[in-house]
Design a protein around this nucleic acid. Structure first.
Lengths: 118, 118
DNA sequence: TCGTGGTTACAAAAAGGTGCGTAATTTACT
DNA sequence: AGTAAATTACGCACCTTTTTGTAACCACGA
Protein backbone atom coordinates (compact mmCIF):
# COMPACT_ATOMS: atom_id res chain seq x y z
CA UNK A 1 0.00 0.00 0.00
CA UNK A 2 2.49 2.55 -1.20
CA UNK A 3 0.66 5.81 -1.61
CA UNK A 4 -2.76 7.25 -1.04
CA UNK A 5 -5.42 7.48 -3.72
CA UNK A 6 -7.74 9.82 -1.82
CA UNK A 7 -7.47 12.49 0.85
CA UNK A 8 -9.90 10.50 2.93
CA UNK A 9 -8.92 10.12 6.62
CA UNK A 10 -10.22 6.55 6.49
CA UNK A 11 -7.65 5.60 3.95
CA UNK A 12 -4.96 7.33 5.99
CA UNK A 13 -5.75 5.42 9.18
CA UNK A 14 -5.81 2.16 7.33
CA UNK A 15 -2.39 2.90 5.94
CA UNK A 16 -1.16 2.86 9.52
CA UNK A 17 -3.30 0.06 10.93
CA UNK A 18 -3.33 -2.31 7.98
CA UNK A 19 -1.63 -5.63 8.27
CA UNK A 20 -1.33 -8.23 10.92
CA UNK A 21 0.97 -6.42 13.30
CA UNK A 22 -0.04 -2.82 14.07
CA UNK A 23 -3.19 -3.66 15.99
CA UNK A 24 -1.57 -6.56 17.78
CA UNK A 25 1.37 -4.41 18.85
CA UNK A 26 -0.99 -1.74 20.13
CA UNK A 27 -2.80 -4.44 22.00
CA UNK A 28 0.34 -5.60 23.75
CA UNK A 29 1.48 -2.07 24.51
CA UNK A 30 -1.86 -1.41 26.13
CA UNK A 31 -0.55 -3.23 29.20
CA UNK A 32 2.23 -0.70 29.63
CA UNK A 33 5.86 -0.17 28.73
CA UNK A 34 7.43 -2.85 26.61
CA UNK A 35 10.93 -3.34 25.34
CA UNK A 36 11.79 -4.47 21.87
CA UNK A 37 12.62 -7.93 23.10
CA UNK A 38 9.38 -8.11 25.11
CA UNK A 39 7.38 -7.49 21.98
CA UNK A 40 9.31 -10.15 20.14
CA UNK A 41 8.52 -12.58 22.90
CA UNK A 42 4.87 -11.57 22.82
CA UNK A 43 4.60 -12.69 19.25
CA UNK A 44 7.44 -14.89 18.21
CA UNK A 45 6.50 -15.06 14.55
CA UNK A 46 7.37 -11.45 13.73
CA UNK A 47 10.84 -10.92 12.35
CA UNK A 48 13.02 -8.22 13.85
CA UNK A 49 12.93 -6.40 10.55
CA UNK A 50 9.14 -6.25 10.58
CA UNK A 51 9.03 -5.32 14.24
CA UNK A 52 11.31 -2.34 13.84
CA UNK A 53 9.50 -1.33 10.69
CA UNK A 54 6.05 -1.49 12.26
CA UNK A 55 7.14 0.26 15.43
CA UNK A 56 8.66 3.02 13.35
CA UNK A 57 5.41 3.40 11.46
CA UNK A 58 3.42 3.63 14.67
CA UNK A 59 5.90 6.12 16.03
CA UNK A 60 5.59 8.32 12.96
CA UNK A 61 1.82 8.11 13.24
CA UNK A 62 2.01 9.35 16.82
CA UNK A 63 0.68 6.14 18.32
CA UNK A 64 3.76 5.04 20.24
CA UNK A 65 6.77 6.70 21.81
CA UNK A 66 10.27 5.31 21.71
CA UNK A 67 12.65 5.88 24.58
CA UNK A 68 16.23 4.96 23.98
CA UNK A 69 18.55 4.42 26.93
CA UNK A 70 22.21 4.85 26.06
CA UNK A 71 24.86 2.38 27.07
CA UNK A 72 25.40 -1.23 26.25
CA UNK A 73 23.62 -3.40 25.81
CA UNK A 74 21.28 -0.91 24.22
CA UNK A 75 17.85 -0.61 25.81
CA UNK A 76 14.75 0.80 24.15
CA UNK A 77 11.28 1.14 25.58
CA UNK A 78 7.99 1.58 23.77
CA UNK A 79 4.79 3.10 25.13
CA UNK A 80 1.45 4.19 23.76
CA UNK A 81 0.96 7.92 23.39
CA UNK A 82 -2.29 9.50 24.62
CA UNK A 83 -3.54 9.19 21.06
CA UNK A 84 -2.56 5.56 21.07
CA UNK A 85 -4.53 5.01 24.25
CA UNK A 86 -7.57 6.64 22.69
CA UNK A 87 -7.24 4.23 19.81
CA UNK A 88 -7.41 1.11 21.96
CA UNK A 89 -11.18 1.13 22.56
CA UNK A 90 -11.79 1.64 18.87
CA UNK A 91 -9.78 -1.45 18.05
CA UNK A 92 -11.57 -3.34 20.80
CA UNK A 93 -14.86 -2.34 19.21
CA UNK A 94 -13.76 -3.85 15.93
CA UNK A 95 -12.89 -7.09 17.68
CA UNK A 96 -16.27 -7.18 19.36
CA UNK A 97 -18.03 -6.41 16.12
CA UNK A 98 -16.26 -9.33 14.54
CA UNK A 99 -17.24 -11.69 17.30
CA UNK A 100 -20.79 -10.42 17.06
CA UNK A 101 -21.10 -10.92 13.34
CA UNK A 102 -19.72 -14.40 13.58
CA UNK A 103 -22.81 -15.50 15.46
CA UNK A 104 -25.45 -13.86 13.31
CA UNK A 105 -24.19 -13.28 9.80
CA UNK A 106 -21.14 -15.42 9.25
CA UNK A 107 -22.91 -18.58 10.37
CA UNK A 108 -22.84 -20.14 6.96
CA UNK A 109 -19.33 -18.98 6.27
CA UNK A 110 -18.14 -20.55 3.11
CA UNK A 111 -21.59 -20.14 1.63
CA UNK A 112 -21.41 -16.94 -0.36
CA UNK A 113 -23.97 -14.23 0.29
CA UNK A 114 -24.96 -14.14 -3.35
CA UNK A 115 -28.57 -14.09 -4.45
CA UNK A 116 -29.68 -14.89 -7.98
CA UNK A 117 -32.68 -13.03 -9.32
CA UNK A 118 -34.80 -13.94 -12.43
CA UNK B 1 -1.39 -11.54 5.15
CA UNK B 2 -1.92 -15.16 4.30
CA UNK B 3 -2.82 -16.88 7.50
CA UNK B 4 -3.46 -16.06 11.12
CA UNK B 5 -0.84 -16.28 13.82
CA UNK B 6 -3.24 -15.99 16.75
CA UNK B 7 -6.86 -16.80 17.46
CA UNK B 8 -7.36 -13.17 18.39
CA UNK B 9 -10.52 -11.57 16.91
CA UNK B 10 -8.54 -8.40 16.37
CA UNK B 11 -6.25 -10.16 13.97
CA UNK B 12 -9.23 -11.71 12.22
CA UNK B 13 -10.97 -8.39 11.60
CA UNK B 14 -7.80 -6.88 10.29
CA UNK B 15 -7.46 -9.71 7.85
CA UNK B 16 -10.73 -8.53 6.32
CA UNK B 17 -10.29 -4.78 6.66
CA UNK B 18 -6.60 -4.45 5.89
CA UNK B 19 -5.52 -2.73 2.77
CA UNK B 20 -6.62 0.35 0.95
CA UNK B 21 -9.90 -0.91 -0.47
CA UNK B 22 -12.12 -2.66 2.08
CA UNK B 23 -12.91 0.38 4.19
CA UNK B 24 -13.30 2.59 1.17
CA UNK B 25 -15.70 0.16 -0.47
CA UNK B 26 -17.73 -0.06 2.70
CA UNK B 27 -17.81 3.69 2.77
CA UNK B 28 -19.23 3.93 -0.71
CA UNK B 29 -21.74 1.15 -0.09
CA UNK B 30 -22.95 3.05 2.96
CA UNK B 31 -24.94 5.28 0.62
CA UNK B 32 -26.95 2.32 -0.63
CA UNK B 33 -26.97 -0.21 -3.41
CA UNK B 34 -24.10 0.00 -5.84
CA UNK B 35 -23.32 -1.91 -8.96
CA UNK B 36 -19.91 -3.19 -9.87
CA UNK B 37 -19.43 -0.43 -12.41
CA UNK B 38 -20.58 2.20 -9.90
CA UNK B 39 -17.85 1.14 -7.51
CA UNK B 40 -15.30 1.30 -10.28
CA UNK B 41 -16.40 4.80 -11.07
CA UNK B 42 -16.24 5.75 -7.40
CA UNK B 43 -12.57 4.94 -7.29
CA UNK B 44 -11.05 4.70 -10.70
CA UNK B 45 -7.66 3.51 -9.53
CA UNK B 46 -8.78 0.07 -8.44
CA UNK B 47 -8.34 -2.59 -11.07
CA UNK B 48 -11.37 -4.72 -11.85
CA UNK B 49 -9.49 -7.77 -10.65
CA UNK B 50 -8.90 -6.18 -7.25
CA UNK B 51 -12.46 -4.99 -7.08
CA UNK B 52 -13.89 -8.46 -7.62
CA UNK B 53 -11.39 -9.89 -5.21
CA UNK B 54 -12.11 -7.40 -2.44
CA UNK B 55 -15.86 -7.64 -2.89
CA UNK B 56 -15.61 -11.40 -2.63
CA UNK B 57 -13.64 -11.07 0.57
CA UNK B 58 -16.23 -8.75 2.07
CA UNK B 59 -18.97 -11.08 0.96
CA UNK B 60 -17.30 -14.04 2.62
CA UNK B 61 -16.88 -12.00 5.76
CA UNK B 62 -20.60 -11.24 5.82
CA UNK B 63 -20.17 -7.53 5.24
CA UNK B 64 -21.79 -7.22 1.84
CA UNK B 65 -24.39 -9.09 -0.15
CA UNK B 66 -24.20 -9.73 -3.84
CA UNK B 67 -27.34 -9.86 -5.92
CA UNK B 68 -27.00 -11.13 -9.42
CA UNK B 69 -29.67 -10.36 -11.97
CA UNK B 70 -29.76 -12.77 -14.89
CA UNK B 71 -29.86 -11.63 -18.46
CA UNK B 72 -27.48 -9.65 -20.56
CA UNK B 73 -25.76 -7.42 -20.08
CA UNK B 74 -25.20 -8.98 -16.67
CA UNK B 75 -26.17 -6.86 -13.70
CA UNK B 76 -24.92 -7.30 -10.17
CA UNK B 77 -25.73 -5.23 -7.14
CA UNK B 78 -23.84 -4.92 -3.89
CA UNK B 79 -25.24 -3.88 -0.53
CA UNK B 80 -24.06 -3.79 3.05
CA UNK B 81 -25.44 -6.51 5.30
CA UNK B 82 -26.79 -5.54 8.75
CA UNK B 83 -23.36 -6.44 10.09
CA UNK B 84 -21.79 -4.23 7.47
CA UNK B 85 -24.01 -1.37 8.57
CA UNK B 86 -22.97 -1.87 12.17
CA UNK B 87 -19.37 -1.66 11.05
CA UNK B 88 -19.73 1.76 9.45
CA UNK B 89 -19.74 3.84 12.65
CA UNK B 90 -16.67 1.98 13.86
CA UNK B 91 -14.80 2.88 10.72
CA UNK B 92 -16.02 6.44 11.04
CA UNK B 93 -14.64 6.52 14.56
CA UNK B 94 -11.24 5.52 13.28
CA UNK B 95 -11.34 8.32 10.74
CA UNK B 96 -12.28 10.81 13.42
CA UNK B 97 -9.57 9.52 15.70
CA UNK B 98 -7.08 10.07 12.95
CA UNK B 99 -8.23 13.60 12.32
CA UNK B 100 -8.09 14.27 16.04
CA UNK B 101 -4.57 12.99 16.51
CA UNK B 102 -3.38 14.98 13.55
CA UNK B 103 -4.01 18.17 15.42
CA UNK B 104 -2.55 17.22 18.77
CA UNK B 105 0.04 14.50 18.39
CA UNK B 106 1.05 14.35 14.78
CA UNK B 107 1.82 18.07 14.65
CA UNK B 108 5.53 17.54 14.26
CA UNK B 109 5.06 14.70 11.85
CA UNK B 110 8.41 13.78 10.43
CA UNK B 111 10.00 14.37 13.80
CA UNK B 112 10.20 10.98 15.44
CA UNK B 113 8.74 10.50 18.90
CA UNK B 114 12.04 9.13 20.18
CA UNK B 115 13.56 10.28 23.45
CA UNK B 116 17.19 9.69 24.38
CA UNK B 117 18.01 9.06 28.01
CA UNK B 118 21.51 9.23 29.62
C1' DT C 1 -19.40 -3.71 -31.75
C1' DC C 2 -20.16 -2.39 -27.31
C1' DG C 3 -21.19 -3.06 -22.45
C1' DT C 4 -21.43 -6.06 -18.02
C1' DG C 5 -19.16 -8.67 -14.54
C1' DG C 6 -16.41 -11.63 -14.34
C1' DT C 7 -11.98 -15.44 -14.95
C1' DT C 8 -7.40 -16.74 -16.16
C1' DA C 9 -2.43 -16.38 -17.22
C1' DC C 10 1.64 -13.78 -17.13
C1' DA C 11 4.53 -9.94 -15.28
C1' DA C 12 5.76 -6.36 -12.19
C1' DA C 13 5.95 -4.56 -7.71
C1' DA C 14 5.80 -4.78 -2.92
C1' DA C 15 6.17 -7.16 1.31
C1' DG C 16 8.54 -10.10 4.21
C1' DG C 17 12.34 -13.49 5.90
C1' DT C 18 17.32 -14.66 6.87
C1' DG C 19 21.57 -13.93 8.28
C1' DC C 20 25.55 -10.94 9.10
C1' DG C 21 27.56 -6.85 11.24
C1' DT C 22 27.77 -3.34 15.14
C1' DA C 23 28.46 -1.02 19.63
C1' DA C 24 30.54 -1.18 24.98
C1' DT C 25 30.45 -3.68 28.83
C1' DT C 26 30.01 -7.78 31.65
C1' DT C 27 30.71 -12.77 32.61
C1' DA C 28 33.19 -17.09 31.55
C1' DC C 29 37.05 -19.70 30.32
C1' DT C 30 42.10 -20.82 29.75
C1' DA D 1 46.13 -11.75 32.24
C1' DG D 2 44.13 -12.41 27.95
C1' DT D 3 40.68 -13.92 25.07
C1' DA D 4 36.06 -15.42 24.01
C1' DA D 5 31.34 -15.15 24.18
C1' DA D 6 26.88 -12.91 25.21
C1' DT D 7 23.96 -9.17 25.52
C1' DT D 8 20.27 -5.44 22.84
C1' DA D 9 18.21 -3.20 19.18
C1' DC D 10 18.69 -2.55 15.30
C1' DG D 11 20.70 -1.55 9.74
C1' DC D 12 21.83 -3.64 5.49
C1' DA D 13 21.99 -6.81 1.61
C1' DC D 14 20.13 -10.61 -0.62
C1' DC D 15 16.47 -13.61 -1.81
C1' DT D 16 11.76 -15.64 -1.64
C1' DT D 17 6.85 -15.09 -1.29
C1' DT D 18 2.68 -12.54 -1.75
C1' DT D 19 0.13 -9.06 -3.72
C1' DT D 20 -1.33 -6.30 -7.40
C1' DG D 21 -1.49 -4.78 -12.21
C1' DT D 22 -2.15 -5.76 -17.30
C1' DA D 23 -4.13 -7.74 -20.88
C1' DA D 24 -6.87 -11.02 -23.10
C1' DC D 25 -10.99 -13.73 -23.21
C1' DC D 26 -15.98 -15.19 -22.25
C1' DA D 27 -21.04 -14.87 -22.33
C1' DC D 28 -25.01 -12.71 -24.71
C1' DG D 29 -28.29 -9.18 -26.45
C1' DA D 30 -29.08 -4.57 -28.37
Amino acid sequence: MKKLVSRCPIEEVMQVLSGRWPTLLIYYLKDGTKRFSDLRRDNPTISHKMLTFELRKLEDAGVVTRTEFGGYPLRVEYDLTPAGLRLVPLIDALGEWWEGTGDSDRVDAGALQTTFVE
